[in-house]
């Protein structure tokens, strides 16, 4: 039977997806640092939506692991939480989603568009250039 095995390195096993997110984050940081001539990353700002299925502490922990011996080793991770904002497609009202109720507080409408709350983004990088 066709069988596909992923993840040969057994020390990289983890039951948390924050690890793979931390690896993607590191990839982006290294690439952006290179583009901007940064040789040592000191601080990284992230935006994480309140609806994102990510635990910031766990992400920071995983990032510490994966960034060892890279230009991002020891960098500070600052997380900005982004609130869940939705807009009603029936009456146009924008509202903050509270208590996990994704219904329009104005008209009760259920057709809504999520404006924010699912972010998993890098917003800035600080570091030292070679010059």
């Amino acid at each position: 039977m066709p069988q596909v095995c992923i993840g040969e390195k057994s020390d990289e096993r983890a039951a948390v997806h924050e690890l793979s997110i931390a690896e993607s984050l590191l990839g982006i940081l290294v690439e952006e640092a290179r583009n901007h001539g940064i040789i040592r990353i000191r601080k990284v700002k992230l935006q994480i939506g309140e609806l994102a299925a990510v635990v910031p502490e766990s992400l920071a922990f995983c990032f510490e692991l994966v960034s060892r011996d890279t230009i991002a080793q020891g960098s500070e991770i600052e997380v900005e939480n982004v609130r869940i904002i939705a807009q009603c497609l029936r009456c146009d009202k924008s509202f903050e989603v509270e208590e996990q109720v994704f219904l329009c507080p104005e008209c009760g409408g259920a057709d809504i568009e999520l404006i924010s709350g699912r972010e998993l983004c890098v917003s800035s990088i600080e570091g030292e250039t070679g010059e």
Binding site: E126, G127, T129
Partner: peptide
């Protein structure tokens, strides 16, 4: 050595 901060979204 210079410190810089770059916005990346």
């Amino acid at each position: 050595m210079a410190q810089i901060k770059v916005p990346v979204v």
